Every structure is written in C-alpha cells, then in structure tokens.
Amino acid sequence: MNNMILTVLTVFLLSACATSPTGRSQVMLMSPEQAISESRQAYVSTVSEVTREHQLITDPVWVNRISTITGRLVTEAIKMNPSSADWQWSVAIIDDPETLNAWCMAGGRMAIYSGIVTQLDLTDDEIAQIMGHEISHALANHTAEKMSRAILINTGLSVASSVTDRNGYVLSGTAVAAQLALQLPNSRTAETEADRIGVELAARAGYNPDAAATLWGKMAKAGGGQPEFLSTHPSPANRMERLQSLSNEMRALNPSLQKSSVYPVTMVTNLNQL
C-alpha cells in the first residue's frame, strides 16, 4: 500500500499540470499515456465478455453505417489533436436493445449499443453527435481524470492488488482504475466540455449541428425511466438552449456541411482485432 501511495504521489507531481482543449486546467494523478495503456486491458475484458454473450454485431449494414460516421469524426479529431493519429481507433457495436449508451475510452477505443440507435430512431446526424461527444471525452483526457478518481477510491479500499477482471486475471491498481472509469460518471464540467467539442467535431465532419439539440430532446423523452446514457450527463434546464447556441456557432465552421474523408477505424467483429 505504501508503494501504491508513493506511486500516486509521484505521478501526481509529474502530471498535475494539464490543460483541456477548452483551456481548463486539469489536475490528474495519471498521465494520458498511462490511461491509454491501461484502458486497453479494460476494453479487451469488456469486448471479450460481449463476444462470449454473442452480443457483438457484425451485420454489414450496421458496421458500414457506424464506421462511416465514426471515421469522419476521427478524421477531424486527429486534426484537432494530431497525437491521436497514433491511437488504436476502434468501435464495437453491442447488440443490446434495452441499453441506451455509448462510450469512448482513452486511446480511441469505443462502443455503441444498438438500443440507443433503434429505440430513439436516430439519424446519421444524431449518431454523429453521440460519437462526437464520446470521442471528445478521450480528446480532453477525461478518462485519465476519471481513472485518477478511481485510483483514489481503489487505494482507499485497499484492493489494488487483489481485484480480478471477468477473465479471472489479477489487475493492477491502474487496470482496476480503467475498469472503474467505465462506470464512474464524468464531472459536470467534463460533460459541458464534451458537448462543445463534440458539436464542433460533428460540424467539421459534415453533420448537422442542429442534431445535438434533437438528440438530447429524444434522450430526455425516452421512456422507462432515465436512460443509462443520460444518467451520467448533466441536464440543466438551459441545456437545449446552450446546444442550439453551439449549433449556430459551429455551423459557421462548415456552412455547406461538406463531409470529411473517412478514417479507417477498426470495426471490432472478432477478438483477433483486439
């Protein structure tokens, strides 16, 4: 435990000073590079479980649609953050009609659940808003921030060396943090940042920024209680107004909504691609 605490303090001193794409100061206990490395193990564990449950969608219609939309967004993400060209950009489409969710881990590893598309009858523009929002979390190093919180929780529980993943492998403290980061909500500030960056990515990629407001309108009206995807996002009364204001601002970046080129994102259809 003393070694774990020493490691946390050392990383804190080395990486405490960081700035998000919107200019916000960030204090992190884990570097973005370490978050990317540890996120891979969490991603492999999650997708492996999905595959065992036969929930990994390989239907070409689904794959082509999501790869095209996400590929255009990634093209713009790399322009915004050139270092992300070295990320392992990938998407797993999870067959779960009841789940309204999507996420992107550090390093560009993503997932989208079928339920959010089918239940809300999403357009391509609205899917672009979802994936753009999630990609923005990775670009802004929000995963590293969440993992830092998880490290503190994990250290407090004294389980850094005794937690296993679903495959039975013992996870290190940082790997546990990567697993927990999938479950911990982002801060309200992080979600506001992802809103702004996501609408910009989508507009630059050629998708209608007005879809941000229609998407969140659909999410707010979704039945069966608060959707999982929405439950970890702030929903102030003025959010729709703020999104519409962002739409007007971002449309000026690409008035004709010219589509970006499609970056070759890896669509995960089997475990060999992990």
Rank of each mutant, 00 (worst) to 15 (best):
M105K: 03
H137E: 02
I130K: 11
M110Q: 14
Q119V: 00
Q119Y: 02
I127M: 07
D124E: 12
I116Q: 04
E126N: 07
G132I: 00
I151H: 05
M131F: 11
E145A: 02
L122F: 08
Y113V: 00
G115H: 04
A138K: 09
T143H: 15
A140K: 12
Q129L: 00
G107R: 05
M147P: 07
T118A: 09
E134N: 08
I112H: 03
N154L: 10
D121W: 05
S136D: 01
I116C: 06
H142E: 11
N154I: 13
D121L: 08
A138E: 11
I135D: 06
S148Y: 15
L120H: 06
G156D: 15
I153K: 06
G132S: 01
E126F: 09
C104V: 03
N141V: 01
A102W: 06
S158W: 14
A111T: 12
L120S: 02
G107W: 10
M131T: 07
Q129G: 02
N101E: 01
L139H: 13
I130Q: 13
A150Y: 11
G107P: 07
L100W: 02
I130N: 14
A144Y: 10
N141L: 11
S136E: 07
H133K: 06
I130G: 10
N101C: 01
N141T: 09
E134Q: 12
D121C: 03
T143C: 09
N101Y: 08
I116R: 09
A144H: 14
D125W: 00
K146R: 15
D125G: 02
E134D: 12
I153T: 12
I151K: 10
C104D: 01
S158D: 15
G108V: 00
H133E: 10
Y113G: 06
W103M: 00
I153L: 11
A102H: 09
S148M: 11
L100T: 02
H133W: 11
H133A: 12
I151V: 13
L120F: 01
Q119E: 09
S136Y: 10
L122H: 11
R149V: 05
N141D: 15
I130W: 10
